[in-house]
Design a protein around this nucleic acid. Structure first.
Ligand SMILES: [Zn+2]
Ligand SMILES: [Zn+2]
Ligand SMILES: [Zn+2]
Ligand SMILES: [Zn+2]
Lengths: 135, 135
DNA sequence: ATTTAATTTGTTATAATATAACACTATGTA
DNA sequence: TACATAGTGTTATATTATAACAAATTAAAT
């Protein structure tokens, strides 16, 4: 069969899932993805979770751990997903990826007392967004 | 009935769950807690999850989001759980709470470009611990 | 071109994590 | 007492995620 993807090296299923996540303005949950891609032929959870796993690996998306949801990367694939930071509104659940080079430099060079060297971090900030704050 | 707790204001179930988590040297999963407290009379998931919720609220324990597991606070209840940082070994899954005032000061005062003010953060670092690094 | 290895797929089933709902009990305060 | 708040025990169910396996596809190597 011919190649099934656009200009990158994603497979058909991976591209379907990525397209859906990129179109969304909010984090998307795995089973919401599943129900939305059934019309495209993806029928079962493993198909979705496999695509998600690959997309995370290549840095196209991130998992928002505290929400069990997935969001498209807005930051040049976050050096393959090893340095992620999010801002989460506790009222409306809006999630934004934080792009801040000072923060990422600080965290990438962080050394704890045990001398452990980190390869990766994930940071989630919680609060109220402008909109919710002014209500 | 008489008071069911030790010197704090935890209930019997909350204290049972806290004792178990504090005794553990590694993060504990909810269903592992459940199976270990059945002999103490806690029989169903909601009993465990309610205790966990309260313990998190008062800062006695934290949830390690990327692992869906719970760990006792080692840091004066982290100002009621609003500023947490963990070091996670990707090989042996050892998890340590990071106590570092420079880091917490930096993150507590962090301001992003949207002007959103944060009430809470959770940071998870991933890498190899000393032991696993030298293998 | 044929073999090989690595990856991805489709599928069924099931595991693991977490919450809803409801009647009831305990506790603290007025 | 009466009231409000919080916690309990229980059953059922919702949500999130993975195991396992046969088949198909792809990339690379001979
Ligand atoms: Zn990113
Ligand atoms: Zn908001
Ligand atoms: Zn703590
Ligand atoms: Zn280790």
């Amino acid at each position: 069969m011919t190649k099934m993807h656009k200009e990158n090296n994603l497979t058909k299923n991976q591209q379907i899932v990525l397209d859906l996540i990129e179109k969304s303005t909010e984090p998307v949950k795995a089973y919401s993805i599943l129900s939305n891609v059934k019309k495209k032929g993806m029928k079962a959870p493993p198909q979705v979770y496999r695509a998600l796993e690959k997309l995370i690996k290549v840095g196209k998306i991130h998992k928002v751990e505290s929400r069990n949801a997935f969001i498209a990367c807005k930051n040049t694939n976050c050096e393959v997903s090893n340095a992620t930071a999010f801002s989460i509104c506790q009222a409306c659940e809006k999630v934004t990826e934080i792009v801040n080079s000072k923060l990422s430099k600080y965290l990438k060079s962080f050394q704890d007392s045990t001398g452990m060297k980190y390869k990766k971090y994930n940071l989630e900030f919680f609060g109220l967004c402008q909109k919710c704050k002014s209500k």
